[in-house]
């Protein structure tokens, strides 16, 4: 498959600090790619390099196979939806959306037609004359998307576009964005620190931390097979327990041996063991290798969230059935639920 955008060995330093540390990333055409990570991980910097707002200190960026280092933003076939929308306050909805087409000096009839299509796409028909300051956050968001898409970019860059919206609206817009991306069949590169958002919308998730790419994969891969403890911890909630890989398919946790499915870590290697809270079941103490005391129970709607203290480690457990506070319970999980990772450095 062809790569529409490729970053090769990208390095960015700022004030002596390394923001991007030799990043390599290939983005397939028509894909919804999310750059996910905590603030300061370099995801926005990566986006700005693709947008043309920032030149990397070294490394190559290609667009449809051609090197575009040094090409200014206004010459790239890429458009951006900015974090706080950056709508032009002195222009109304129509003029904002038409801005890029006016700059390209398209005929007025063509502009009207294409802006109209966009208004339909983002459900803003009838708002043409509206002043930007009199739109709700969600409407502003739609204008920003329309303003970028009307230029028919090959790639749309979105920098935490839903960050300023409330939860309900955010969920709606997530579905809306996915719908737009699929109907237009263009590449979306989406930056967020919200893991749920990333998992909901993306075809591919790129998890970043401290200027490094931690893992690239589908949402399911990222969630089920995190490559290291950072990813596991960042995506969803996890129990990360120190363990020792005794040999292939056998790991020791809190002094007990468990069968698992991972191989190739060598013998007697210290590792991090990751187990998702929902993969753990509570059983009578006599049926489990590990047991502990329930120290907290919280009702979360769909499930209960419980903390069980066992062998100096606090296990986070999600279950539809609650256990009694203070009671002794057994902790059980299958071989598939155990994810072994290399110990995190530092």
């Amino acid at each position: 498959m062809e790569h529409i955008v490729s970053l090769k060995d990208i390095v960015v330093n700022f004030d002596g600090e390394q923001i991007l540390n030799h990043i390599n990333l290939d983005i397939k055409d028509k894909e919804f790619v999310t750059l996910l990570g905590p603030s300061g991980c370099g995801k926005t910097t990566t986006l700005r390099i693709i947008g043309g707002f920032l030149e990397p200190d070294s490394g190559v960026i290609t667009f449809e196979g051609k090197k575009i280092n040094g090409l200014p933003a206004y010459k790239r076939n890429v458009n951006t939806v900015f974090q706080r929308y950056a709508l032009f306050p002195h222009l109304n909805v129509y003029e904002n959306i038409a801005f890029g087409l006016h700059v390209k000096k398209l005929p007025e009839r063509e502009i009207r037609k294409r802006v109209g299509e966009m208004l339909d796409l983002v459900n803003l028909r009838g708002y043409e004359k509206r002043n930007i300051s009199r739109l709700s956050g969600g409407q502003q968001q739609r204008v920003a998307i329309a303003r970028a898409l009307v230029n028919r970019p090959k790639v749309l860059l979105l920098d935490e576009p839903l960050g300023a919206l409330d939860l309900k609206l955010r969920k709606e817009m997530q579905i809306e964005l996915k719908r737009i991306q699929q109907s237009l069949e263009i590449t979306f590169i989406y930056v967020t620190h919200d893991q749920e958002e990333a998992l909901t919308m993306s075809d591919t998730v790129v998890v970043m931390n401290q200027g490094n790419i931690q893992q690239i994969g589908t949402p399911v891969d990222i969630y089920n097979e995190p490559e290291n403890a950072f990813v596991a911890d960042f995506i969803g909630e996890s129990n990360i327990i120190p363990g020792i890989m005794l040999k292939d398919c056998l790991v020791e946790i809190s002094g007990r041996e468990f069968v698992c499915v991972d191989k190739g870590f060598g013998n007697n290697t210290p590792v991090d063991v990751v187990i998702r809270p929902e993969d753990i079941t509570l059983v009578p103490t006599e049926d489990a290798k590990l047991s502990g005391v329930v120290t907290s129970v919280t009702f979360k709607g769909v499930h209960y969230e419980m903390v069980v203290e066992a062998y100096d480690y606090q296990w986070l457990i999600q279950s539809t059935r609650s256990a009694e506070l203070g009671s002794a319970v057994g902790i059980s999980f299958g071989p598939d639920d155990i994810h072994i990772m290399h110990k995190m450095k530092g």
């Binding site: 947008g51 043309g52 707002f53 200014p72 933003a73 206004y74 890429v78 458009n79 951006t80 900015f82 974090q83 706080r84 950056a86 709508l87 032009f88 801005f99 890029g100 700059v103 390209k104 303003r147 970028a148 230029n151």
Partner: peptide
């Protein structure tokens, strides 16, 4: 001013002076 306004104009095809 939203610092991104200038970039947004460039993103939409304006050169620096025009933006």
């Amino acid at each position: 001013m939203d610092a991104n306004l200038y970039e947004a104009a460039q993103d939409l095809g304006c050169g620096p002076v025009r933006a």
